[in-house]
């Protein structure tokens, strides 16, 4: 090995080691500790018995209440992902196509909500969707309903708020994923006899797949792990895995069980990531 490549390797090593160390300390170690915790025995008094048991996992698997919760969580992830795609896609497509000189500003505006914390935006939705909120006031004022609609403290509110909160992420992913797209391709398809509808499904949609997939993965993962929004907008009346982890850890003080649920959630992530990779490989092989 020449001196040059050796020094290059040292440089690479020097640059990566701090990052790897940081990752190990801040991520791998806590995760290992959490995994160990999930095999301890806990109870509702907060006592933790150091042992090696699958009790917590068995408790989860053996109770249909938790199966329902896992199902609702998955459903929330899928639902929010699909709805976010539906509402974000037209915006992203517009931003890709536009020749406006304000394009940069428009893109910035579309992702500007990321500048405020999702906690703040969640409170915003509480104000908007509450019984005295703008939406209900408007509906009643217009005489469309007599009673305020129940838009918070239920699953509907959680969906609405999460979709809005996830939109900027989705738009960013879609914009990045449109790499191989250019408006000229639509013109070409149109000139070859495709109407707008077929141009979209045969050309635009397939070419946007990488962005759609990446956005879907990100939004799904962020959604099923989100805690603040389901908790606040759900008003403690709807339960998902993430809120349950919080409740078990802070209210019930059953840390081993909380840790077990965390790992079950992690398993869900793993499944989704595998699906994502498969799908990505398939569209790339085209």
């Amino acid at each position: 090995m020449s001196a040059k490549t050796r020094s290059a390797r040292l440089t690479v090593l020097g640059l990566t080691v701090p990052g790897l160390l940081g990752l190990a300390v801040s991520f791998v170690l806590p995760l290992a500790w959490l995994l160990r915790m999930s095999f301890n025995r806990g109870d509702s008094t907060g006592l933790i018995e150091e042992t090696f048991t699958l009790d917590s996992y068995a408790q989860f698997v053996g109770d249909s209440y938790y199966w329902d919760m896992a199902w609702e969580t998955t459903l929330l992830g899928l639902g929010v992902t699909v709805l976010t795609i539906v509402v974000s896609y037209p915006i992203a497509l517009f931003l890709v196509r536009t020749e406006s000189r304000f394009k940069g500003i428009l893109v910035a505006l579309a992702v500007a909500p990321l500048l405020t914390s999702s906690v703040v935006r969640t409170y915003g939705w509480l104000v908007l969707l509450g019984n005295q909120g703008v939406v209900n006031q408007a509906l009643m004022g217009a005489g469309l309903v007599d009673q305020p609609l129940a838009l918070i403290n239920n699953r509907l509110g959680v969906y609405i708020a999460l979709v809005e909160i996830m939109m900027p992420y989705m738009i960013l992913c879609l914009l990045a994923g449109f790499g191989r797209f250019n408006p000229e391709l639509e013109h070409a398809a149109r000139s070859l006899g495709a109407n707008r509808w077929r141009t979209f499904w045969r050309i635009v949609w397939p070419l946007s797949m990488p962005g759609v997939l990446t956005g879907a993965l990100l939004v799904f993962v962020l959604t099923i792990s989100s805690f603040v929004t389901p908790r606040l907008v759900g008003g403690g009346k709807v339960f998902y895995l993430a809120t349950e982890i919080y409740d078990q850890a802070t209210a019930t003080l059953n840390w081993p069980f909380a840790a077990a649920i965390a790992f079950i959630l992690l398993a869900l992530f793993a499944v989704v990531i595998v699906i994502y990779q498969r799908a990505l490989r398939r569209i790339e092989a085209q």
């Binding site: 191989r180 250019n182 000229e184 070409a188 050309i203 070419l207």
Partner: peptide
């Protein structure tokens, strides 16, 4: 139509 950048469908 034939375009300057060909506009072939990459997928």
């Amino acid at each position: 139509l034939v375009f300057q950048n060909y506009a072939l469908f990459p997928h």
